[in-house]
């Protein structure tokens, strides 16, 4: 009896809540619960898993905190979910986007919950790379037509009888499976599963001067440590990029990396939003910070501090007047 009464009460309460609709809960306004505590103005930045993105965030965070008096929270999110989080106001900004046309159309053009904040200043390029010591030994390996000839060099336990094409994090933009298929390459993409795993693996190969072929991208600090040369794939064309993902058979584009802000934040974010719009630096400057973080194992904060103290001329112009 008692149980039935309870059930009835619960049901009634539920119906009442829905019917009266005491205010809708807007799923697009969901600021992080850790934000804006004790009166501080908070900016939440999304960090993607590669070090370059971390450098952007580290420097932006340092300047926001020390020059503009904000509190900054960072959240590690992969690229595509970051767009989603940005549209829901869970993060305020993405500082390095490698090109996501679908998301851009959906959130920037259709729903208008995200706005562009312009170029980051760095140009990104994805491709296939071999270590320099291998390219010196076999110069013709740098043309994709000859890759099959060398497939046996790249065999590993994971790739079996085929050559191994080392791939990285599943979150990265990649057509490698399609490329291997469509170019009839005797290779097997082996996904390291994360950039950390991929870097560890590349270093391991390099230390032993073993041959390897890897999906990689520029700018990347690892080039300073393990010199690599790009393998030429069929040239990139817009027509080829427009094909279905499984049919793509040309190289990756070269992208001017973009910044995006949550639409609300862009409007009401004050100096922080303006600062993030102004944020603009070069490949070398970014690499300098990345190198400190990933190689010298400085904490992102310490690396940012060092860079900021050495290059005031660069960041002065980012600060809103």
């Amino acid at each position: 009896m008692a149980r039935r009464k309870l059930l009835g009460a619960l049901l009634a309460a539920g119906v009442l809540l829905t019917a009266t609709g005491c205010g809708a809960a807007d799923m697009t306004k969901q600021t992080s619960p850790y934000a804006n505590v004790s009166g501080a103005k908070t900016v939440t930045l999304s960090v993607q898993s590669w070090v370059g993105a971390e450098s952007n965030v580290a420097v932006a965070q340092y300047l926001l905190e020390h020059e503009l008096g904000y509190r900054v929270d960072t959240v590690q999110v992969d690229e595509v979910p970051a767009w989603d989080a940005l549209s829901q106001d869970r993060v305020d900004a993405i500082l390095e986007d490698w090109g996501h046309p679908d998301q851009e159309k959906r959130y920037v053009h259709d729903k208008k919950t995200i706005v562009s904040a312009g170029d980051e200043g760095v140009t990104g390029h994805i491709g296939w790379w071999v270590p320099k010591y291998l390219a010196d030994e076999h110069p013709d390996i740098l043309d994709w037509h000859n890759l099959n000839k060398y497939a046996s060099l790249f065999r590993t336990a994971e790739s079996g009888s085929k050559g191994q094409l080392l791939d990285g994090s599943p979150s990265y933009v990649t057509n490698d499976k399609a490329l291997v298929n469509n170019l009839h390459l005797d290779y097997q993409p082996v996904f390291a599963g994360s950039e950390a795993a991929q870097i560890t693996q590349i270093k391991q190969f390099a230390q032993q001067k073993k041959p390897f072929l890897t999906y990689w991208y520029m700018p990347q600090w690892l080039f300073n440590e393990v010199p690599m040369v790009e393998v030429k794939l069929p040239p990139y064309t817009d027509a080829c990029a427009a094909k279905a993902p499984a049919d793509i058979d040309c190289a990756y584009p070269t992208t001017a990396l973009q910044k995006y802000l949550n639409a609300d934040f862009a409007k009401h974010g004050g100096k922080a939003a303006q600062f993030l719009r102004n944020f603009h630096w070069t490949k070398d400057q970014q690499n300098e910070v990345s190198q400190m973080i990933a190689e010298e194992k400085l904490s992102p904060e310490a690396a940012a501090k060092k860079w900021v103290s050495e290059h005031p001329e660069v960041w002065r112009s980012w600060l809103p007047k």
Partner: peptide
């Protein structure tokens, strides 16, 4: 998670 992304 963040530290792992830099093999740290």
């Amino acid at each position: 998670y963040q530290a792992l992304s830099t093999v740290d």
